[in-house]
Structure formats: structure tokens, C-alpha cells
């Protein structure tokens, strides 16, 4: 695969994929962290139910997730209708919708990674910090967050990879609109429908692999720079 084989349309697809995946992961991260925190640290009624709910996108066929998003966030749906009428915002058929679909699909993986790292933190370190004068917010910022950092990094990488490869929920929710929602997997699928477009399939698939490898390498570099202990993420 060489860069010369990529057309302007291909570059548009790649840029869009990076934007959608990047925004999906960054927007999902705080949500995933909150859920992971609740599941790892709190004992409350309905915790098992919440756990199951978080895992749904992992279990359900992606098209079902996309369909659920369609019903909920489509302009005829309860949330989507309200958004359009009151704020004039539509996420359906827009890159923001693609990012939502990718974020929802990435959520369970991200929650799992962060939750594991939170559960691995010995709560006695927080007790030690408490006796040294650290209020809850300070303990969170200086003890919990740094110790959970490898898990958060893993969550970001896994989430990014999952978002980059997201297909079923995206095409069901926001269709494949060039320049708006047609991300790499959708463009590959579309090229597969055209006889003789195999070259494009190979080129775009090659780009996908390359991006995934770059993300992995980047995370390794980050982990190493932040004091070895973070080590491998995958």
C-alpha cells in the first residue's frame, strides 16, 4: 500500500474516522470512568443491573444498538425530537451521531479496563493519604488517578480501536454519508459492493491496520514515558 493509491475521497474518510473515533473516546472517557468508579467502589441497589446494562453493547449485535440509538436519538424519537425542536441539534446522519454510536460501542470495553485498574488499587494507599491530611478530592487526584492511569490509557486505546472499527451500529444509526458519517469500515463495505473496487478495499483496510498499530505504538511510548510501571496496555 502506498500513499499515492489514496484518493482525496480516501483521505476524507481517514480524517473523518480519526475525528469520529477521537471525539467518541474523549467524550466517553468521563462517562466510562464514572461508571467504572460506581461499579468498583460503591455497593448499591441495582449495581448488577447497571453492570449488565453497561455490557449490553458488547453482547448485542451492533445493528441492534444502532437501531436503539435510531429510535431514541432520531429526530422522531423522544430524545432526538426534543434536541431538534428546542436546540436545533440533530445528531442523526451527522458525524456527531457516528461518534455517539462509536462511543456507545466502545463504552463496555472502556469501563472494564478502568474498573479493573480501580479495583487493583489498594484502598490502604488512600487511607495512608487520608492520615497525611488529604481530603477526598485530593486523594482522588494524587493517588487514585495516577494509579489508575495505566487502565485509563488501556481504555483509551481499546476504545479508539473499537471506534475505528465500528460498523454495524454506525450504518444503522447514521447511514454512510460521504464526508459526514462514512468512516473507514463503512467506506470499505461500500467499496466491497462495487465490482472491481478491490484496490480501494485493500488501501483502506491497510490504512485501518496502520492506524491501529500507530495507536498501539503511541500508547506503548506513553506508558514507557510515564515511569515504566504502566507497562503494557494490551
Amino acid at each position: 500500500m502506498n500513499a499515492a493509491a489514496l484518493t482525496a475521497a480516501d483521505w476524507q474518510v481517514i480524517a473523518l474516522s480519526l475525528k469520529v473515533s477521537g471525539v467518541a473516546v474523549l467524550a466517553t472517557l468521563p462517562v466510562a470512568f464514572g461508571l467504572a468508579w460506581a461499579l468498583a467502589r460503591w455497593r448499591f441497589f441495582g449495581r448488577v443491573l447497571l453492570d449488565a446494562l453497561v455490557h449490553l453493547p458488547l453482547v448485542l449485535p451492533p445493528v441492534v444498538v444502532g437501531w436503539a440509538l435510531l429510535l431514541l436519538l432520531g429526530p422522531a424519537g423522544p430524545v432526538g425530537g426534543w434536541l431538534e425542536r428546542t436546540l436545533g441539534v440533530t445528531v442523526m446522519f451527522r458525524w456527531t451521531g457516528a461518534a455517539i454510536a462509536a462511543g456507545v460501542m466502545a463504552l463496555p470495553l472502556m469501563v472494564r479496563a478502568i474498573r479493573l485498574s480501580l479495583e487493583a488499587i489498594d484502598p490502604r494507599f488512600e487511607q495512608a493519604a487520608e492520615t497525611l491530611g488529604a481530603a477526598p478530592a485530593r486523594r482522588f487526584a494524587t493517588i487514585v488517578l495516577p494509579l489508575a492511569a495505566p487502565g485509563v490509557l488501556t481504555a483509551v486505546i481499546l476504545g479508539f480501536a473499537r471506534s475505528l472499527g465500528e460498523f454495524g451500529a454506525t450504518i444503522t444509526f447514521v447511514s454512510a454519508i460521504p464526508g459526514e458519517t462514512e468512516t473507514l469500515p463503512l467506506a470499505i463495505y461500500s467499496a466491497l459492493q462495487i465490482p472491481g473496487a478491490e484496490a480501494r478495499v485493500w488501501a483502506l483496510a491497510g490504512v485501518s491496520v496502520l492506524l491501529a498499530l500507530m495507536a498501539l505504538a503511541g500508547s506503548e511510548w506513553l506508558a514507557r514515558r510515564h515511569g515504566g510501571s504502566g507497562g503494557r496496555v494490551l
Partner: peptide
Amino acid sequence: PVLAFAASSALARQVQAGAPA
């Protein structure tokens, strides 16, 4: 025109959901 191609069934469901098309 901005063209979006998919299975007719998938597109019809999107229209039902209020697709801005």
C-alpha cells in the same frame, strides 16, 4: 446531492426515525 447508500430496509428504518434527509 449528498448520497447515502444502504439496504432499502435500513434506510426505511432511518426515515421512520426521522432521518434529516
